[in-house]
Structure formats: structure tokens, C-alpha cells
Design a protein around this nucleic acid. Structure first.
Length: 805
RNA sequence: GCCGGUGUGGUGGAAUAGGUAGACACAAGGGACUUAAAAUCCCUCGGUGGCAACACUGUACCGGUUCGAGUCCGGUCACCGGCACCA
């Protein structure tokens, strides 16, 4: 009997499609399990070999959960808005919706080919108006609660694509796609106030089970820091606010620096005697991209403002004010007090511009370099009432003093910025807002959702940086929902991250046309029990969707504070030789080729066997053979096993051990060692001979990994019972802990910590027995000759260490 | 620069409450079967020495703790990922 994987896989995929054994049932009394993978972007290239890694892992987890009696929701969908489709449409003069449809159909076919146990009746497509109606609805709610606002922002502009880029689309200062120069451009943008949720996004990480590096990366990205806001009066008669984490060094503040964009620069214009020079610097800074500004970290630049000085509040000294682009307008107050003695950047600047350097923390040589201690080793000097204190002691004393003098207060700052939410692109969700000369920005009433994306003649971006939608005057010109007068629609669309920020909720109730999902479905399925995805989404999608979910929680739509209970992450699949797979390198592996040559079960098994799930691994076409060979060996067992339905005695121990190992490893995402254990068991079956009953257990354990082959063998061996249940509907096998232990064990015998031999002893032998067996062993006795036993270290069943003298 | 991770045979990788390093595979070499090839099966496979038994050595490098260290601690180097003038 030959293992004809092609026909077997076709047969069972058709059967699953027909009988739907993987359907999730809302409200079912069984315990629920919601396993989620990041839904793919349906690119024109089709499925990449990187996709099956996380997909197969979660499929295995979900298949096992079903066999363990859970009601499992394992859905799939498509994150289909986005620029590659739009660019393809422009180039080939096809509507992006048609391209999307084709791509989704190709992806669907490929995903089905791999035998994933998705509930195909719950497919979600972010470009479907019935879906993006609710994306728009959430935006309206955000607007209603004051969390969406429009403001003018400098953005990244690609000179060749004539298009705004997100920060993550700018790589080393050039456009990620075309390699052209990226410049800054001021544009009016819709923004979402994610910063309002900064603290909760940090705090609630304590309540979820995410792998540590995800939590750390999110915390770093949000970047909380505590310090003080301090008021400096100026000779212009106003108050300049700064933020510092080192208010203990206030006596050492010898000058101040404003970001070039700081509002006071313009405000002080009449007082500044060198305004031309200042203005020139401001203009120069504006012309630079963020990348160029960051690149210039070797040499500090700046201009001193003549005509206005600040007063250090602790000693009344007049100090100069500079503008320099090493101060960022977007962080803190956009202004700093400079303490050159104790800050590297201030020190560099001071050296170049000849500013005074005053040591206020003893312990370094501030003429040579800044003494920037972060710990508690320095002692305050030249600091009046702080003298003699350590830094740690001085900070609260100074904070208290500032508060008493009404000169400042404790303050928390975050690096996190509000989310730039508009894109000048066609292929995205229209933002449901209307601008009326009389009423300003007016939200569309809910009854007018979805606001459909109109058909345009050309999706080409414009030279002016307006969205292609702006040319659709019929669509743009509308009436104000508020006053009924003439008004214009917003022509920017939402970023790709919008649709993916809530898709997991739609899966719970995908066909609901009254709400984004029913309360019943949300209550039943929330939260996602296990979400696996890429590290590259940690600070984008994962953070954005947590933010939206918290907002939906606040307005009473969802029942949980956090969307995902558990988050894990997979490593990348690299090409042979450890290089990134790319078209230009020509090392891209297409899953179709592997499936054609070896079958989907081999593909699934191999992608799991290949290495540690969390780490990057290189793909090897050669190594796939080993996984295929293993499945062949399993297949051939059906021909050579005895007819007994009982578990054979000689295999009992390995069977129980393997059930334990495979069960535990799947839960810990250690698929590679689970498969190794199955291989070991099969090797033993060949060595010992095996019964049909033995093979039955093997098939159950293997079924999440190689579902097609297992179903076929299940049928061939006649395991299908009267109810006609498939292997995937059977109960997951249980093990007897007592039977996972052998009667006898091999123990290592060390002498003075050095391995000198091994002995066989009954399991659980006591020290006395072990020592006596060891000393009676010829090989070991040799080493013990003429010496006396001083000490014995006995680790039951593992090792005995004899110390001799 | 800061944060995080990793470093084990020719290759992918096993092994952590500190307890026989190299499980399971791939490749390679040898053999069986075959007219032949493929497939399959058996054997060898970290290094050095030895016919062998065996000995010594070995988990990036240096040092420490311990009866015992791939695993813990201190330091160094290399690579990968993230952030990057965040005051």
C-alpha cells in the first residue's frame, strides 16, 4: 500500500469542508478556547513559507484542544487594505477590489491546501463594507469621546511615490519601496489620542501572560519616565517650562535650550536682536528629515538667542538661552535646562559653545567628561541646601522645595506619541467626517455607515499630496449633516492598522449587521485565549489593538480590559545559509512546491520540526526528506502491526512517556521536541514490533501534526466507530504517570565529580544500595582501590558521586 | 550609546529546581538488497591518542562558586533584534 498523499489530502479536505468538524459554536456549554493567528495580508505573491510556521503551530494547539473537549474558535481572515495592492492596481489598471478578490481566493486555496482547521464560515475581510462599516463606527465613537482630532503635523513624504509614509515605512531615510528621498512636509492629519491610555497600556501588562520580551518592548516603546516640571522665568517676563529627571542638578543648570520649533522663538521675535540668525537656523532644521537630524549626533549645532535670558530659580543667576535641534519639540515641553557637568549631550554642547560647566555632584572630573551617574554614588556639592546629600536623597528634597516655592511639580512623561491616523491613499477605509465652513468638522451620522469607497478613475497619487479621492468632486461635495449647508468630505483614508485593530472581535460574530458583534458572542468568546504573532507587530498592531480594545471596554462594548490573555511570538524562516528570503536573492521557498513534492502533512510536520519556534531558522530543502521519511515509516506500520487492539506490553512504557511528552510540549509550543518524541516512539515500534492498539495511540498523538494521513490510516485500520467520528474528533489520549517510569534505571557513577561508569539499579534505590552496586562494579572498583569513602552525594535515579581519599 | 536575546558536532537542533552533553533529524562514510538506480534496512559519525579495552579533552573566551557547571555568578568578545540626542 503506497502513501498517496496527494489524493489522501484532497479526500480529507473535501470531507472536512462538507462535514465542518471545526465549526465553533457560540454559547456551547463546553469550555471555550479562542486561538488566534495574525490574519495575513493577501499579497499578489501568494503564501510565503513564513506563513505556515505560526499557522501550523496554532492549528496543532487548536486541534489538540478540540480533542481535549474544548469548543474551539480558530478563525481566519484577510487584512486586505494596503499599498501593495493599490500600486499593483495602478500599474495594471485594475480596480484594487478586483485584485484583492483574486488574492484572497488564491490565499484561501493555499490555506485549505495545508489542512488548517479554521472555521471557514467566519472569514473576515477588512475591505468588505460590511466589515469596515464597524471600523468607521469605532472611529466615530473615538471622535465622540474626544480621542480623535485633526492637527497639522510634519509627516514623511516620498518624493517619488508622491505619498505620505508611516515612520515604519521609512528605512534609513529613504522610501522602503522605491528607495527615493523622504522629506518632511507639514500636513493636516487625523490623530488618535493613544497617549491618554499610556499608563493603562503599561499597568495592564501585569495581568496578561505575554512572553517577557513583548512586555519589555511595549514598556520601552511607551517610555515612561518620572521627573519634575520646573518653571524658569525669563527676562521677557514670561515663564519657560522644562522637564527634567534630574532636578537635583538644578544648581548646575548654566544655560537653557529650546527646540527650534518651540513657540517662544516666534513669541520673542521683537526682543531677539539676532533674529535673522535664529530664523535661519530654524529654517535649516525644518528642512532636515528626522533621519538627518538624528544622524548629526556627532556634532552639536545651535544658536544663542540674544536679547532674552532665563533666570535659574535656585540661585537667581541669569543664564543664556540657545536653540538647538538636539532638543525635540515633541518630548516634554520642548525645552530643557542644560546641566553640562552631568549630561553628555549638554557637556558636548557646552564645550563647543563655551558655556559654563558647574559641578554639582562630586565623583567625576567634569572638565574631562560629563559625570552622569544613574546610581547612588555621587554627593551633591555647590548646591546650597542639597549639599552632602546623595542623588537619590536630593531628588525628593528638591521636588518638595520646588512645590513649596510654586516653581514646579512632579511630572510623568511618555515617549509614546499620538497615532497619525490619516493616509493620502485610495485603498483604505474612508474617514467618515465632513467639513462644513459653518460647523467645522462634523461626524457622519451612524445611519450613513458604511461610507463606501467611491470608484475613481485613477488611483494615482497626486503631486499636491492630496488623496486620489479629492478629485472625486461628486463624492467630496456633500451636505453638512449638522446644518444642511454645503460641505466637503474628508478625502484621507485610514491606515492599514485600523482594520486589524479589532478584527478578532468580528470573528466572534462575523455576520452581525446590527452591531460589531453581539453581546452574547463577546461575552462568550472574550478574551482571546492565545494569540501568536510576529515580534514586528509588538509596538504597532499589538499596541494599537490593545488601545482600541481598552477604549471599547470604556464605552461598554467589550467585556474585558485586555483583548489577549496570552501572546507568543515565532521566529522568522530564513533562506538556506541564514539569509533573509527575498525575491532579489532568489531564495524564496513557495509552500506549494513542498506540498506538491512531499504533501501538506510533511510540510506541516517539517516546519514544526525545523527548530525552536521562537528563534529564526534557515530553511533547508534537503532536510524535508527526514520528515517525509518519518511519515512513510508511520504509514508502513499499518502493514506490519499485529491485529491486537490492546496496547502491547513491551511498548506500554514508551507509549505513556510519549503521551506525556507530546501533551506537555504542545502546550509549551515545543513542537520540535514533541515530534522528536513521536519519532523515538516509532523507532521503538519498529524495534519491538507493535500492535494495532499501539498504532492507534500514535495516530491520536500525530493527528494535530499530520491530520490528513492520520484520518486515512484511522479509516484503513478500522478505528472509525459506529458514530463515524473522525480521528480529529476522538478524545486526546491520557497517560498513567506510574507507567511513564521504568522499573530499572541507568545511573551515572562519578568519582570526585568525574564520570567513571554507569550502573543499572531498580528505580528509587536508596543510597546504600546504589553505593554497594557501584563499588561492586569492576570498572568503578578499579578507581576505588586502596582508598576510603569520605562522602557520598546521591541524586536518586540520576547520579551518585563518590568522594574518595 | 541604551534595552533585550543568542553563542553546543560538518548542518538543523536536544538537554536548565546545577546531576551521564550531543536526544531527534539532515549530510557524510561503510555495508546489505538490486542487472543497475531509486527506495528500504544495518553499522560508524565532537576532537586527540590507541589494534582494542580505554584515556585525555570538549558547550564563544577568561575567571569564580560547587562534590559536580552548557545550565549559576563576575568580566571579555562576536552575532541577531528593538530603540536611538526622550533631558
Amino acid at each position: 500500500m503506497k502513501y498517496d498523499f496527494t489524493n489522501i489530502e484532497k479526500k480529507w479536505q473535501a470531507k472536512w469542508e462538507e462535514t465542518k468538524p471545526y465549526a465553533a459554536v457560540t454559547g456551547d456549554p463546553r469550555k471555550k478556547f479562542y486561538g488566534l493567528i495574525e490574519f495575513p495580508y493577501p499579497s499578489g505573491q501568494g503564501l510565503h513559507v513564513g506563513h505556515p510556521r505560526p499557522f501550523t503551530a496554532m492549528d496543532i494547539i487548536c486541534r489538540k484542544k478540540r480533542m481535549q473537549g474544548y469548543n474551539v474558535l480558530f478563525p481566519i481572515g484577510f487584512d486586505a487594505f494596503g499599498l501593495p495592492t493599490e500600486n499593483y492596481a495602478i500599474k495594471n489598471h485594475v480596480h484594487p477590489a478586483i485584485v484583492t478578490k483574486q488574492n484572497i481566493s488564491r490565499f484561501t486555496q493555499q490555506l485549505k491546501m495545508l489542512g488548517y482547521s479554521f472555521d471557514w464560515d467566519r472569514v473576515v475581510d477588512t475591505t468588505d463594507p460590511q466589515y469596515y462599516k464597524w471600523t468607521q463606527w469605532i472611529f466615530l465613537k473615538l471622535y465622540e469621546k474626544g480621542l480623535a482630532y485633526k492637527t497639522t503635523m510634519p509627516v514623511n513624504w516620498c518624493t517619488s511615490c508622491k505619498c505620505v509614509l508611516a515612520n515604519e515605512e521609512v528605512v534609513n531615510g529613504v522610501c522602503e519601496r522605491c528607495g527615493s528621498e523622504v522629506v518632511r512636509k507639514e500636513k493636516s492629519q487625523w490623530m488618535l489620542k493613544i497617549t491618554e491610555y499610556a499608563q493603562r497600556l503599561i499597568d495592564d501588562l501585569d495581568d496578561v501572560d505575554y512572553i517577557e520580551r513583548v512586555k519589555i518592548q511595549q514598556r520601552n516603546w511607551i517610555g515612561r519616565s518620572t521627573g519634575a516640571e520646573v518653571n524658569f522665568t525669563t527676562t521677557a517676563g514670561d515663564v519657560l517650562k522644562i522637564f527634567t529627571t534630574r532636578c537635583d542638578t538644578l544648581f548646575g543648570a548654566t544655560y537653557m535650550v529650546l527646540a527650534p520649533e518651540h513657540e517662544f522663538v516666534k513669541k520673542w521675535k521683537p526682543l531677539i536682536t539676532n533674529y535673522q540668525e535664529v530664523e535661519a537656523y530654524v529654517e535649516e532644521a525644518a528642512r532636515k528629515s528626522d533621519f538627518e537630524r538624528a544622524e548629526l549626533n556627532k556634532e552639536k549645532t545651535g544658536v544663542m538667542i540674544q536679547g532674552v535670558r532665563a533666570i535659574n530659580p535656585v540661585n537667581g543667576k541669569e543664564i543664556p538661552i540657545f536653540i538647538s535641534d538636539y532638543v525635540l519639540v515633541t518630548y516634554g515641553t520642548g525645552a530643557i535646562m542644560a546641566v553640562p557637568a552631568h549630561d553628555t549631550r549638554d557637556w558636548e554642547f557646552a564645550k563647543k559653545f563655551g558655556c559654563e560647566i558647574v559641578e554639582v555632584v562630586a565623583g567625576g572630573d567634569v572638565e574631562k567628561e560629563a559625570f552622569t551617574l544613574k546610581d547612588d554614588t555621587g554627593i551633591l556639592v555647590n548646591s546650597g541646601f542639597l549639599n552632602g546629600l546623595t542623588v537619590k536623597q536630593a531628588i525628593p528634597v528638591m521636588e518638595k522645595w520646588l512645590e513649596e516655592q510654586k516653581l514646579g511639580k512632579q511630572k510623568v512623561n511618555y515617549k509614546l506619541r499620538d497615532w497619525v491616523f490619516s493616509r493620502q491613499r485610495y485603498w483604505g477605509e474612508p474617514i467618515p467626517m465632513v467639513y462644513c465652513e459653518k460647523c467645522g468638522w462634523v461626524p457622519l451620522p451612524e445611519s450613513q455607515l458604511p461610507l463606501l469607497l467611491p470608484n475613481v478613475e485613477s488611483y494615482e497619487p497626486t503631486d499636491t499630496g492630496e488623496s486620489p479621492l479629492s478629485k472625486m468632486t461628486d463624492w467630496v461635495n456633500t451636505t453638512c449633516p449638522h446644518c444642511g449647508g454645503p460641505a466637503k468630505r474628508e478625502t484621507d483614508t485610514m491606515p492599514q492598522w485600523a482594520g486589524s485593530s479589532w478584527y478578532f472581535l468580528r470573528y466572534m460574530d462575523p455576520h452581525n449587521d446590527k452591531e460589531l458583534a453581539s453581546k452574547e458572542a463577546l461575552d462568550y468568546w472574550s478574551p482571546v485565549d492565545w494569540y501568536n504573532g510576529g515580534m514586528e507587530h509588538t509596538t504597532l498592531h499589538l499596541l494599537y489593538s490593545r488601545f482600541w480594545h481598552k477604549f471599547l471596554y470604556d464605552i461598554g462594548v467589550v467585556p474585558t480590559k485586555e483583548p489577549y490573555q496570552k501572546r507568543t511570538s515565532h521566529g522568522m524562516i530564513l533562506g538556506e545559509g541564514g539569509e533573509k528570503m527575498s525575491k532579489s536573492r532568489g531564495n524564496v521557498v513557495n509552500p506549494n512546491d513542498i506540498v506538491d513534492q512531499y504533501g501538506a502533512d510533511t510540510m506541516r510536520l517539517h516546519i514544526m520540526f525545523i527548530g525552536d519556534f521562537e528563534k529564526a531558522v534557515s530553511w533547508s530543502n534537503e532536510a524535508v526528506k527526514g520528515s517525509k521519511r518519518f511519515l512513510d515509516r508511520v504509514w508502513n506500520l499499518a502493514d506490519c502491526c499485529t491485529n491486537s487492539e490492546e496496547i502491547s506490553e513491551k511498548n506500554e512504557s514508551i507509549i505513556h512517556k510519549t503521551i506525556k511528552k507530546v501533551s506537555e510540549d504542545i502546550d509549551e509550543l515545543k513542537m520540535n521536541t514533541a515530534i522528536a518524541a513521536l519519532m523515538t516512539m516509532v523507532n521503538e515500534f519498529y524495534a519491538n514490533g507493535c500492535s494495532k492498539g499501539d498504532v492507534r495511540i500514535l495516530l491520536l498523538l500525530l493527528s494535530p501534526f499530520a491530520p490528513h494521513m492520520v484520518e486515512e490510516l484511522w479509516e484503513i485500520l478500522g478505528f472509525a466507530d459506529a458514530t463515524g467520528k473522525m480521528a480529529c474528533q476522538q478524545e486526546w489520549p491520557a497517560y498513567d504517570p506510574a507507567k511513564t517510569v521504568d522499573a530499572a534505571v541507568e545511573m551515572a557513577v562519578q568519582i570526585g565529580g568525574k564520570l567513571r561508569g554507569t550502573i543499572q539499579v531498580p528505580v528509587g534505590s536508596d543510597q546504600e544500595t546504589v553505593v554497594s552496586v557501584a563499588l561492586n562494579n569492576e570498572k568503578i572498583a578499579k578507581f576505588a582501590e586502596g582508598k576510603s569513602l569520605v562522602k557520598v552525594i546521591h541524586v536518586p535515579n540520576k547520579v551518585v558521586n563518590l568522594i574518595l581519599k
